[in-house]
Design a protein around this nucleic acid. Structure first.
Lengths: 101, 101
DNA sequence: ATATTATTTAGCTTAATTGCTAAATGTTAA
DNA sequence: TTAACATTTAGCAATTAAGCTAAATAATAT
């Protein structure tokens, strides 16, 4: 797969949209501070909303590429894609560190 | 006004929500690369959507604190609050540069 | 005073998001 | 093979977001 600017922009859109919800930002931080990996249940148990609602948040994060998932037995283990997050947002933010000519 | 963690969190929410829309991110970049200040008309003319729609985007950005506005004659001049953007997002992103203990 | 310019506000419609509960799926244990 | 567990999918209701056109406001120019 070669570089596709259109899908890259689309992904930036997905990522910023994913970050727009408090619960999803919280999930990312929780994942990070618990070592980068947690099962769906471990995540769901830490949040006030219902498990299906958390599942949907996880899915939005997964489609954006900010997390990935792995089946382990009957559990699903979600993994933070830390570099995807820091690279995408960091690079966007970098435009504002550049002097406007 | 002393530091208020609740309103600080609320503002983070506003900022991430403001950044979730492509047009609003575009407005911020346009402002930055045109020197940090533009009239509402200059901004609206550069976008495909109707002027009232742009006005609403500008208002969302203003309420979040990412831009500010100044009346100059019959124009309204919008100004990018560059540091608000880089500080808020940069500091949030920094959590992910810290080692999770 | 009146017209023109710059911009916002109001009001409406459609689409998207978020939350819920209940049902379905797939996996391991008895 | 049946029960229990871990999780997702389906489907619904309520809220919010985003777009438009038309009307309102406020400042300058004639």
């Amino acid at each position: 797969m070669t570089y596709d600017p259109a899908s890259d922009l689309e992904n930036t859109e997905q990522i910023f949209s994913a970050l727009a919800h408090q619960s999803r930002r919280h999930i990312l931080l929780t994942l990070h501070f618990r070592g980068g990996q947690m099962s769906a249940g471990d995540i769901a148990n830490r949040f006030a909303c219902s498990w299906p609602t958390t599942t949907r948040h996880l899915n939005i994060l997964r489609v954006s590429g900010l997390i990935s998932v792995d089946k382990v037995g009957r559990e699903r283990v979600y993994k933070l894609e830390r570099e995807k997050l820091t690279k995408t947002i960091g690079e966007w933010l970098d435009w504002f560190e550049r002097k406007p000519e």
